[in-house]
Design a protein around this nucleic acid. Structure first.
Lengths: 132, 132
DNA sequence: CCTTGACCTTCCCGTCACTGGAACCCCTAT
DNA sequence: ATAGGGGTTCCAGTGACGGGAAGGTCAAGG
């Protein structure tokens, strides 16, 4: 398989796949002409990485998860800790975004949004005191 | 005011303030010795930027918002559009994160997390088919 | 045989919003 | 004179790629 084939089958851009090789996540063989020669196991790894990335794991998390995936004797507790930490991070980010949404929503609702210059959004950003 | 003073009063790191000058968000004067000399209006701008950033606006959004803030004749509709677009982006991000959280939560719950190698999380990442 | 076009290769730069660090200058107090 | 705590510039790195240049390779068609 050339890079285009794995790209299609893994739904990852070729650039991304080259990058993953560069940082050592995968180690595809090479043909005589210098082309990367991907095997099924490379493809499986890429699909694995793609799914983990789509769940928001960092590539370093992916590296750890891949290592555990390859390690037949790993303890599921190790995987679970990575996933739980990541889940906690996601929940923090959701909470942060929800706080932003709350404030923004209040400001947007308070703003008439017409052609007058009076704007509660700018006033809110300038300071709760409302100074402009 | 020197940079340390505005840094304390705006709660922004000096490095960040220098960066904001570099990209033209603020234009503090200079003392004879080359030190930046910040006025109250610089400080107000920095506080404004800091609040906008904490609401997740990009620095380019901040540049637009600052321009509108300075423009006494702006229409509040312009501000509102920026804020509404940003709000929509935040809501998309929240939705994405909640989808991740849902999947991750399911996987984490399914995982015993003990010292056995059997791990539904890895199986889930390898593919819904469950192949490992 | 030559060309076309789709692949593939490496390499370097740009993204976003900073952060860290080096090397150096300035000012005040002791 | 020195020590410290400011300040200044510039360079490099972050994460996870994406864009684009310059060039090698391969199969098909004229």
């Amino acid at each position: 398989m050339n890079i285009g084939d794995v790209a299609r089958r893994s739904e990852l851009p070729p650039k991304t796949i080259r990058y993953y090789e560069e940082i050592g996540l995968i180690r595809p063989a090479r043909d005589a002409n210098g082309y990367r020669a991907f095997g099924e196991s490379d493809l499986h790894k890429l699909i694995f990485i793609g799914r983990a990335r789509s769940l928001g794991f960092t590539v370093e998390d992916c590296r750890s998860l891949l290592a555990l995936w390859e390690d037949r004797s790993r303890a599921s507790a190790d995987v679970r800790r990575i996933a739980k930490d990541h889940l906690a991070g996601i929940e923090r980010r959701i909470a942060d975004l929800e706080a932003m949404r709350g404030t923004l929503d209040t400001l947007v609702r308070a703003c008439a949004g017409d052609d007058r210059p009076d704007c509660p959004i700018l006033a809110g950003l300038a300071g709760p005191s409302g100074a402009d």
